[in-house]
Design a binder for these strands. Sequence first.
RNA 1: CGGGGCGUAGCGCAGCCCGGUUAGCGCGCCUGCUUCGGGAGCAGGAGGUCGAGAGUUCAAAUCUCUCCGCCCCGACCA
Length: 571
Amino acid sequence: MTAGLTAATSSPSRPPNWPAWLPRRPWSWGPGAWRCSPEPGLVPPIVPARGFPPCAGRAIFPRRPRRRGFHTHPERGIGMADIAKRADDYSRWYQDVIAAAELADNSPVRGCMVIRPNGYAIWENIQKILDAKFKELGHVNAYFPLLIPKSFLAREAQHVEGFAKECAIVTHHRLKQVTVNGKTTVVPDPDSKLEEEYVIRPTSETVIWDMYRKWIQSYRDLPILINQWANVMRWEMRTRMFLRTTEFLWQEGHTAHATAAEGRAETLQMLEVYRWFAEEILAMPVITGIKTANERFAGAVETFSIEAMMQDCKALQAGTSHDLGQNFAKAFDVKYQDAEGKVEYVWATSWGMSTRIIGALIMTHSDDDGLVLPPRIAGTKAVIVPIWKNAEEMEQVCAAAEGLAAQLRATVGNVHVDKRDNMRPGWKYAEWERKGVPLRIELGPRDLAGQQVMMVARHDRKKEAVGFQQLAEVVTNELARIQQDLFDRAVQRRRENTHIIDSWDAFTQLFDGPGGFAECHWCGDGDCEKAVQEKTKVTIRNLPLQRDETPGACVHCGKPSIGRVVFAQSY
RNA sequence: CGGGGCGUAGCGCAGCCCGGUUAGCGCGCCUGCUUCGGGAGCAGGAGGUCGAGAGUUCAAAUCUCUCCGCCCCGACCA
């Protein structure tokens, strides 16, 4: 050790009496010295306290700038949550917002995520609202198991093809302790190998239709309208928080009907439920339409989707509804006897919305300061920030805040009073903005004296003084205004980025540049669609239910087309 | 699975090129006092097997190899 010390002190690269805590070469000396100094020849100050000149390390080892966390803001002081700007790095922004709003965290398992309370509150609201709507339409909830016999997947030919590549498989039912090189670990016990292996459900059609066979004999057993809230697992190569994770939560509806028309009607009805939910509750405008054959669900006769535009102009499929025809009934031999005594296969639908919608929600409304939530889906509708200087004021202001909150809870839902005494109001404002609470209500001694509060909207920072007497009414109206504003804003953005395009030049120009939705003619040929995708990464999102059906020529191959479809890059 | 980037305290980073002191800094956290209407100040304090494992060496955050994880771009997909 001593020898080492001596060597260091006498090192030629370290000048005599150089402080030990400084890097050996904070700036270079000798020839070309003071390279980092703004004015050559001027001796840079010796760092006064512990700490390195900011350029020291980077000048020698330039590094890509990384996210900076909670750093000092040059103008606004300390502790600014550092969220990447959308314009600079959209996908980092997305992740930063999730982290800053504490929606989710990475899990120890690759591709999986932990949904934190703030994120789960959103999911709970989604569940609550959708579930009520499903039930209103006659659906009931049930639960089917996580594990599916491997052989079930193989029953429906297209279904296997669609899911085989992304299934997790359970092969053993027991672990065994083993000691290798003195370390104890566990391995699957070879003696516990399963005779029939199980697949962790990527979707539940197969188990459900296996059961429906038992439950359906006559037309009097139909329709069956079952929904389940569950987790599913699809082994993805590349994952992204909420948008595509290995395990995700969703709702899957599975219905059985006596006629094709009834099945189709159900499919369209649920599509409409999703449209309603996205637009009215999430303030997210969507295009309802039919998927092309290439994008159709494995095993479906027809797939319908709702497609939303994110702030980076990419499309996101936010919900799907499938008309399964008789495909699963045939695969699982589900027949019924009609009133005339004829035996027929049952007609099926399935439809789902997943935690992916939360990703869409984030990317539709949030801004560079963090999450923005529409009031109808926000777990907390408003937060009251009491302001005080001393214990006496604190008591008065908090009591008043609690009183107002109680009153508001009765009319608008969950309202939080932030009584933490270890941070100042400004900090709290910033924090609740990051977390996307739609409305902030400030209440200080001066307000209390005037029997009023300051009310600030998250999305546009609009500030308004409101008297105690009018508060409940004004807040209700303000939440409605926010909801509408967010929707209008999103519609506006989509309108600005949707283009009618009739030439391949314009098409490539759009997608080489800003991107967006392109309403184009398409010949209807799947190979032509694939060719477009290979050239430009652009796919057909859907064939809108309301579309321009003036005939034209395919934007790619020029063959005749009977109507316009929506092209976009997608998540 | 290919190409690139990265892994050091809760978060963000410096240190690595050229191995050597007790591994630092900012924010956050804890304690106390003063504060509190847009991200508070001062003082004191806690917190690290430097992603994991092997190797080289008297000595490894630093050099070598392997593995793991994260991010970006592809391939794949809802």
